[in-house]
């Protein structure tokens, strides 16, 4: 009697789901809501931002809260949404070993960290005020970048 054919499983499709991408997705979701809240505030849809530490009012009403007509928080919303989407795609069996997803996660989170570092510099040395939500976002994107670092292994050793 011939052996039954081996069923293609999630494991065969790309191994176990990469934990680091799960972490990126969850942290990205937290960052997305922080950015959404700031965007809603910027559009006048929320009440005042009450900061326990720092001065969100000064930061949010400064000229640096926008790049041209685009609120910085809107850029955050789009960026976090893109990182979440990438992480979720990268968790699907067919893409768990994907070099493209790994490369994009590294590049996206790296860009996010650079952008966030610039905004933090503005808060510290130009605006001279801190917004706690911006600080939370900066921490989130830094953690996402750190969680993306294992992608280096996939990018170097992956087959797709």
């Amino acid at each position: 009697m011939a052996d039954e054919p081996v069923v293609e499983t999630a494991g065969d499709g790309g191994g176990a789901p990469p934990t680091n991408r799960m972490v990126v997705a969850v942290l990205g979701l937290v960052g997305l809501f922080v950015a959404l809240f700031l965007w809603a505030h910027n559009a006048g849809l929320t009440g005042p931002i009450q900061c326990g530490i720092g001065d969100c009012a000064t930061v949010q009403s400064s000229e640096y809260a926008r790049i041209g007509p685009i609120p910085v928080s809107a850029i955050g919303v789009v960026g976090y949404a893109a990182l979440i989407a990438l992480a979720l795609v990268g968790l699907q069996p067919a893409h768990r070993a994907s070099r493209l997803v790994g490369t994009m996660l590294l590049a996206g989170s790296g860009l996010g960290v650079a952008f966030s570092a610039w905004l933090t510099y503005l808060e510290a040395f130009v605006i001279h005020a801190w917004c706690q939500y911006c600080v939370i976002s900066a921490i989130m994107i830094t953690l996402i970048f750190l969680a993306s670092l294992p992608e280096l292994g996939r990018v170097r050793g992956g087959d797709r």
Binding site: A43, G44, L45, G47, P48, I49, A57, Q60
Partner: peptide, 11 residues
């Protein structure tokens, strides 16, 4: 702004 109250509160 469609809802300017939060901006007024910031000011």
């Amino acid at each position: 702004a469609s809802m300017p109250a939060s901006a007024f509160e910031d000011y």
